[in-house]
Design a protein around this nucleic acid. Structure first.
Lengths: 239, 239
DNA sequence: GCCTAAAGTTAGGACGTACTAACTTATTTC
DNA sequence: GAAATAAGTTAGTACGTCCTAACTTTAGGC
């Protein structure tokens, strides 16, 4: 490695730029913490040209945030993982705070948090978290990393994977699209809601759900974004 | 004017970048709204080289935010003034919110707001303002521009200009330096406090103040940053 | 195992914002 | 009003991030 590149790697703890934080967050969520992320996946998630990603991941690797092997994707280093979790914590605490303290609807928090996460200090985020009682999940049910950089990584089944007749409690909606969130809200498919799969039509057909006294049908693409914790069935439940 | 430059001026209502907002804010506060600002003043306020300012003001003039005449400083256009006031409103509402809702001390709000002002949406700022009861001043006593872009431009005397024997109510501390603010806080020279000038030493010497039951001396440089509304003297006041 | 499609990279350029060094214009002083 | 100083500008460069176009490497189908 050249002296110049070595020097750039040694460069200390300057704050990360907003694009850098976005890359790390994207890589983290693609790789679920430790897995690898492909150039095209990163490009798609960030709505950038793949060529731009190639250039950026090289710089991030030079800074010691990524392990990068040409043509074979990237993995976060320990320092990259910490930075990603810091940003993810900011994002989710801010989302929770906007909903709890400022009356935002759950379909609006993501966009606002997407900008604020790069501007808020650690202290601000900690104060927000304290003010609303140290939440453990954001308004979509996504777990909030702790200050020391650990996060609940429980993997949940989606509603699309639940067997016919099985019940579950919605724990998370794994998508930020405001339209989708509003639609789910109308159906009152929200974190905490108990649902039962009544039937599933063949050939990727609609899934019929029971939730409280209601019954409803949703497509499999939508169902795949609704994550549930399975519960044992019992009769005479209260909605 | 060339076609290319004309085209760039016509470019619509894209959101302004953070540096652009900082320039406009600086120019507004230097020119007190409508006055002119010199290149070197802007450079000093933003801690930039004068050459950088020359380049930037030309771009801002191309965008119709400034009136710029080479070698003769700049003035905000109406559109520049509106943008500056929008940023100033964000900044001061955020400061007030941090202090009121999140327990920040008055010497810490400026730094945090300096970054958040570029990331917060109008909606967020309006919600913050509503949540803390539509404040009219920030924690330092600076007036908050209204949503429709007007601001109380009352000019106050500073403590350094108050005659010996005269009294005033502190309305504002016109500086953001945390050390200065903490020091004034220790002396409890805060917005709302009533003070009386007891004496003034010659040759720019210390100014002795009475405030409540206390008496204290401060230097003229510090006094110049403390703005007061004059009040008629009366005996037997309560602190 | 070869060929093609998919995935990824390099080359070259643009834009916004900053810098230093060298130059020009304006202002002050005598 | 000329010289000295202050204020401001241009020229040339750097850096971070993005782009498109053209090229290279990898992986999948036969």
């Amino acid at each position: 490695m050249s002296a110049a590149r070595e020097a750039s790697r040694v460069r200390g703890r300057e704050p990360l730029t907003a694009p850098v934080e976005d890359y790390l967050k994207a890589i983290y969520t693609i790789g679920k913490g430790t897995g690898a992320a492909a150039t095209n996946e990163i490009a798609q998630r960030l709505a950038l040209a793949p060529a731009s990603v190639s250039g950026m991941v090289r710089r991030l690797a030079d800074q010691g945030l990524l392990a990068y092997e040409r043509y074979h994707g990237v993995k976060l280093t320990e320092s990259g993982r910490r930075a990603a979790l810091r940003t993810l914590r900011r994002h989710r605490v801010i989302e929770a705070y906007l909903a709890e303290a400022l009356g935002y609807q759950w379909d609006r928090v993501h966009e606002e948090a997407e900008r604020l996460e790069h501007a808020a200090s650690d202290e601000l985020v900690d104060r927000m978290a304290a003010t609303i009682g140290e939440p453990e999940v954001d308004p979509h049910g996504a777990p909030i990393p702790t200050k020391d950089g650990s996060m609940d990584e429980t993997e949940y089944k989606s509603l699309a994977d639940l067997a016919v007749g099985a019940s579950g409690v919605v724990v998370r909606v794994a998508d930020e699209d405001p339209e989708m969130l509003r639609y789910l809200g109308e159906l009152s498919i929200l974190p905490g809601k108990r649902v039962t799969v009544k039937s599933r039509a063949p050939y990727d057909g609609p899934i019929t759900l029971g939730a409280g006294r209601q019954e409803m049908s949703i497509g499999p693409a939508l169902a795949a974004h609704v994550l549930v914790a399975p519960v044992a069935d019992r009769a005479g439940k209260r909605g």
